[in-house]
Simulated scan of single mutants.
Amino acid sequence: MSFDVGAFLLQTVPFAQTLGIVFDKVEDGYAVCRLPDRADLHNHVGGPHAGAMFTLAESASGAAMLTVFGDQLSRAVPLAMGSQVRYLKLAMGEVAAEAWLLGDRDAVVAELDAGRRPEFDVRVEVKNADGTVVCTLTVSWTLRPNR
């Protein structure tokens, strides 16, 4: 990717910046980002709020997606279509999200070339500092062709 995907996302999605999300690793179809442990992001039991963890996970999925399809931004807008989230364990402290693109670039671009809206998924795991998976997500994305 020829541009800083993490910086791009923080600029274009100000809410992620408000939460203090930090992008640690962004490479071909893969991203890792962190949510700091801040009292203003906590829920009623002292851990990160589910909404903050969701935003962290969606941000990681967007970064993983952009590493593969960022070169298509001049002709299509990436949009999250939906997600399946599962909160597995109580999260405490700083959490990190790790995302993997599940879609095939060639198939997605071929659909876009044909004038259709391709759809593909990104898988995300959110972990506590000790590596325990506390939340999983699958985010479904589309590339909406510019008209």
Rank of each mutant, 00 (worst) to 15 (best):
V108Y: 09
A50G: 15
R117M: 13
G6R: 08
G70A: 05
V134I: 01
L19E: 02
V108I: 15
E98L: 09
D106W: 02
Y87E: 00
T132Q: 11
A60S: 12
D28A: 14
S2V: 04
E119L: 13
V5A: 10
W100H: 15
A91G: 10
L137N: 05
T142F: 00
R38E: 08
A97M: 06
L79K: 00
T132V: 14
R86N: 14
G20V: 10
R38T: 04
A16F: 13
W100T: 14
W100D: 11
D24S: 12
C33R: 02
F54K: 05
L79V: 15
I21N: 04
H44A: 09
A31L: 02
E98R: 15
S140F: 00
V134S: 02
R123K: 15
G103D: 08
L9G: 08
P145V: 01
N146V: 14
V13N: 11
W100E: 10
M92E: 12
T12I: 09
D113H: 00
A57Y: 11
H44R: 13
D121A: 12
G46T: 03
A114P: 03
T12N: 15
N146M: 12
G82Y: 04
P36K: 10
W141L: 04
N146A: 14
T18G: 07
A57S: 14
R123W: 06
G51M: 11
G70E: 08
V122Y: 03
A16E: 03
A91K: 06
G20Y: 11
K25Q: 13
L66N: 09
A97V: 11
A96M: 10
G93E: 06
G70M: 03
V95W: 07
E27A: 09
G70T: 01
P78N: 04
R116C: 01
L35T: 00
K89P: 01
V109L: 08
W141V: 00
F3V: 13
Q72S: 12
L66M: 13
E58M: 14
V95T: 13
P36T: 04
D104P: 11
C135H: 07
G131T: 02
V139Y: 01
R123E: 10
W100N: 13
R75D: 05
V133N: 05
G46E: 05
R144L: 12
Y30G: 03
D24Y: 01
A7R: 11
V85T: 15
A91R: 05
Y30Q: 09
D37Y: 03
F23H: 06
V32R: 15
S74L: 09
S74W: 08
G131R: 09
V45R: 11
G20D: 06
A99R: 12
S74M: 10
A52Q: 05
S61G: 15
C33G: 06
L10A: 00
D4Y: 09
K89D: 05
V22D: 08
F54H: 13
A110L: 06
F8I: 03
T136P: 05
S83G: 14
D37V: 00
L66K: 05
D113K: 00
R147M: 04
V26Q: 07
K127E: 02
N128M: 11
A63L: 09
V45Y: 12
K89N: 07
V68P: 01
A7Y: 03
C135S: 12
I21L: 14
T136N: 03
V134Y: 03
Q11T: 14
L112S: 02
H44K: 07
L143I: 01
G46Y: 01
R86V: 09
K127H: 06
